[in-house]
């Protein structure tokens, strides 16, 4: 009885995770420029992976509590993979956004762009060379 209940919870977590991952794909297709696409591609996949990894962790926990030591491997390794995703995904997004802005992509329909006035390292070096 409890076993079937945990099965149903695992399926619900999988469904939520898959829904957010598909949302990321639709967002990548619909949004107009690089920055808004990064919003969709970073947030939705990270949130979806929390639920998908959570279902695998729940499966391993049930195995562990029922007395199979192999369940501990599932729990710990999936937890480490989840931490890796949570650390690397937003950092990669910063790097891509900064690279896009420095290579000259402007945000579409921007109300305000304060970053435009900031001197980049290259232009600062040129200014010093001119002096």
């Amino acid at each position: 009885m409890l076993n079937q209940l945990i099965d149903i919870v695992i399926y619900i977590l999988l469904a939520i995770g898959v829904f957010f991952n598909i949302l990321a794909g639709i967002g990548l297709l619909r949004f107009p420029d690089v920055y808004t696409r990064l919003h969709a591609g970073t947030k939705c996949t990270t949130f979806g992976s929390i639920f998908l990894c959570g279902s695998v962790i729940l499966y391993g926990l049930r195995m562990w509590i029922l007395g199979n030591v192999d369940g501990s491997i599932w729990v710990i390794h999936t937890g480490i993979a989840l931490v890796a995703i949570l650390l690397t995904n937003p950092t990669g997004a910063h790097a891509l956004a900064r690279a896009a802005h420095r290579s000259g992509v402007k945000p579409v329909g921007a109300v305000i762009d304060e970053l435009e006035n900031k001197p980049t390292k290259k232009s600062a070096n040129k200014m010093e060379a001119k002096k």
């Binding site: 639709i26 329909g109 921007a110």
Partner: peptide
């Protein structure tokens, strides 16, 4: 905050209303 962010992105994906800008 993360859960709110995802429903916000879902809303904007479906309706397409955006008003972007870069602030400091």
């Amino acid at each position: 905050g993360m859960a709110k962010a995802n429903f916000d992105v879902a809303y904007r994906v479906i309706t397409g209303k955006i008003n972007p800008g870069i602030v400091k």
